[in-house]
């Protein structure tokens, strides 16, 4: 009896997720009357704004990932090494972006860096690009920090650091040659989540008036019938590809290497 309920719950859950997907995919294939076709997809791919916004967002995602790695890896490392008592607080801070809406963050940025401020980042095109990267990095912080921190837990940070120091290494060498290579898998999984977040993000890009993929999807959705469905399927495919790559990378990881 219990089993039956478990199966029922599972099936209902799956239907809840899959039905809309199936419906959407089905709809996206029906642009031509009476038969299935990829016309909607062809239209989307032919649109030059698709290419522009997509590549812009990919660039932003890569920059965000690089910035995030430079910010998070040394921070998480330093906290583990020298300030372990601060870990709960840092963890709390990195969780804040989950609680504070993106719109609040971006309004904060716009006010703080407006054209009459000390650092008028909103005044130039590159300035808003930089703000956008900062904003994205903030949004991905909870995932990036957690991934890297978990990765650091699998190595003996203190002893490895001391071993490297006694061999003459300075901080840059230690982080670049020992810490980072040992948390690559963690960094990769954080990076894929970041990528997925950036590709779908709407609020920040729209408010900073950037030609990103998220606002484009919204624009298309407001004006067309079939193309938005096709675009949604594409976006969904990207997210799943990211998740798949995360799985793949963590499978490729070597077995735990710590002596017991």
């Amino acid at each position: 009896m219990k089993r039956l309920w478990a199966w029922a719950a599972l099936i209902i859950g799956l239907l809840y997720f899959i039905l809309p997907l199936v419906g959407m995919t089905n709809f996206s294939l029906k642009m031509r009357r009476g038969e299935y076709s990829f016309d909607a997809y062809a239209k989307v791919f032919a649109d030059s704004r698709f290419h522009e916004t997509f590549s812009y967002s990919v660039w932003m995602a890569l920059l965000t990932i690089i910035f995030g790695v430079f910010l998070v890896v040394p921070t998480a490392y330093w906290v583990r090494l020298k300030l372990p008592f601060l870990r709960p607080y840092i963890e709390f801070i990195t969780l804040l972006p989950l609680v504070i809406p993106a719109i609040v963050i971006v309004f904060g940025y716009i006010r703080l860096y407006n054209t009459s401020s000390w650092l008028p980042l909103t005044g130039s095109y590159v300035g808003t690009d930089i703000l956008l990267v900062f904003g994205y990095a903030t949004l991905s912080l909870p995932y990036m920090y957690r991934a890297v921190d978990t990765g650091l837990r699998t190595i003996d940070v203190t002893t490895l650091t001391e071993a490297a120091q006694s061999l003459g290494a300075g901080w840059v060498t230690i982080i670049g040659r020992i810490i980072l290579p040992n948390v690559t898998v963690a960094v990769m999984s954080g990076a894929f989540v970041t990528f997925a977040i950036v590709m779908g993000e709407f609020t920040m890009a729209a408010l900073l008036n950037k030609p990103a993929f998220g606002p484009y999807m919204q624009l298309l959705g407001a004006n067309r019938a079939y193309e938005p469905a096709a675009l949604a399927v594409i976006a969904f495919g990207i997210t799943w590809a990211c998740l798949g790559l995360m799985q793949l990378v963590s499978k490729l990881q070597k077995t735990p290497q710590r002596p017991v």
Partner: peptide
């Protein structure tokens, strides 16, 4: 100074 630790501390990567 060369140092050898109880837990070996070889660089795993």
């Amino acid at each position: 100074i060369g140092m050898v630790f109880q837990a070996y501390a070889l660089f795993p990567n």
